[in-house]
């Protein structure tokens, strides 16, 4: 909620607000990056889940900054409400040690680090090259949810129907795989 207000404030002013927006972005981004790095480095599984929540919430906040409120709400409901809970179930069911006693990082983590650095270099180079100084529209208004729903139920009707079948079959299959019998 706080983020929403922040964004609202940000939108109503002019030049100063732009600064405020950028400040908000900066703070949230810093939190997200820090949390993301903790997710992949911490040696406590539950902490990792908590940091993941931080990242997901941060992403939701960024969506609001970008005027995509419905997506932000969905993000919070689906990710934080459902997926993270699933993770916690997973942690409990697999009785993973909460911390310390087990190695959490593979021996060849250096390969992973190398890969991600190479990838980051490529991406940042191309992004800067491609979208350089492109500015987002200054008057970003929250997207009307109705427009979104109209799109889903007309243009994107096929994927919408498909995804319902997808969720059903994923549900059925996951139960079969996970069932103890």
């Amino acid at each position: 909620m706080g983020f929403t207000i922040l964004a609202e404030v940000a939108r109503n002013a002019d030049a100063d607000v732009l600064v405020a927006q950028n400040v908000a972005f900066g703070i949230i981004a810093a939190i997200m990056i820090f949390s993301a790095i903790r997710v992949v480095t911490t040696s406590n599984v539950v902490h990792a889940a908590a940091f993941l929540v931080m990242v997901l919430a941060g992403a939701a906040a960024q969506f609001i900054l970008l005027g995509a409120e419905f997506v932000a709400v969905t993000q919070v409901m689906v990710y934080i409400g459902a997926i993270v809970v699933l993770f916690l179930f997973g942690i409990m069911l697999t009785r993973a040690p909460m911390q310390g006693t087990e190695k959490f990082t593979r021996d060849n983590w250096k390969v992973g680090a190398l890969t991600s650095v190479v990838m980051l270099a490529v991406l940042v180079f191309t992004l800067v090259d491609g979208f350089g100084e492109d500015k987002l529209p200054a008057d970003l208004m929250p997207t009307d949810t109705r427009v979104l729903s109209d799109a889903i139920f007309s243009t994107y009707l096929v994927p919408f129907e498909v995804i319902s079948v997808l969720l059903l079959s994923a549900l059925i299959g996951a139960i079969v795989i996970a069932r103890k019998d």
Binding site: Y156, P159, V165, L166, A170
Partner: peptide, 30 residues
């Protein structure tokens, strides 16, 4: 198979993506 049939008609990134997941996720489980 439903996913495969959809993907062969899909001419839109979203449809392609969703159909692709439709054909993939069941096969992960299979």
């Amino acid at each position: 198979i439903f996913g495969m049939m959809t993907i062969s008609s899909a001419r839109d990134l979203i449809t392609i993506f969703v159909a692709f997941e439709m054909l993939s996720i069941p096969t992960y489980m299979l």
